[in-house]
Amino acid sequence: MISLPDLLMPSRSGRDARARRALATLSRQASALRSAPRVPAVLAPKGPPAAKSVVVGSAQKLNQASGVLAFSVLTDSALEHYRGSFRNRAMFTPLVVSTLALAASVHGTADDRPDVHVARDVVFGLTALTGLIGTGFHVYNVGSRQGGYRWLNFFYRAPIGAPMAIAISGVLGNMSERLRRTPRGTPPTLYGLDAGKALSLFTALSLAGTTGEAWLLHFRGNFQNPFMYTPVTIPPASGALLADAALRGGASRRSAARAGMIATALAGLAGTGFHMRGVARMMGGWRNWTQNLLDGPPIPTPPAFTGLALAGLAALDLLERRDD
């Protein structure tokens, strides 16, 4: 889903400034020629568009981001809710919803048509809603046991941050659909805000929240390995750089933020490796996988940072386009 060149290149359209300008001109002209009322994507005429817009490219990147997050949530909730023996039927919900979000994200990643896809849009909306409801369930779950909202229950009961990851996946998907709808020649917006800025700030906020979750669980693990500080330092710092680039602009701030996002994406992947090693270090190691996959460090969670970093990179593309 993510290739290293993808991560390292500033953006597909930015490889060559001249090509980018030409593309922009082309897109403005194309936009001016189009006057027909917008029709839903499913009804849109088939066939490749003349040229792919930057906005659609960013939308596709957002689909990658939402997809990585959905995959992380799917695998993590499958493990954690299996651990909880699916005592409540609602515990199947995140599996179903994140599977749909993952499918929609894959579909969106492959779809370079500049329009909203109704089914995808519905799925992402549902995904975001599920995340919010799930958060409510988890908040209730933490407080419902003896001791209520005390450290013990934050450590070991349903993690409050986990359903937020699926909500974020849904919001990113939703943003992707909104971006696709951007009329040619007009600056992209999201929920009435400049798209680059809105996505940057949302990503920065999401990184902060995910950092909080990582901090809680790594604090529970007493930061026994110095690398456990990685997810509580690099992502929030990168998120701050991203917010800074969005609010104050400038090529150097964008470069710094891009470096941060790349570092965050790599940290997410490295985290998976560390967590696999962590499972090996538990009593019985991988031979005791029926216990250690559940009790050891969760292997599916660190890629959530990678997903958010992809969203950050998409945001940087949009910022770059705005400021050029």
Binding site: G84, N288, T290, Q291, D295
Partner: peptide, 8 residues
């Protein structure tokens, strides 16, 4: 119960 203990 060793090396596998209990989870739930």
């Amino acid at each position: 119960a060793s090396p596998r203990g209990y989870v739930r």
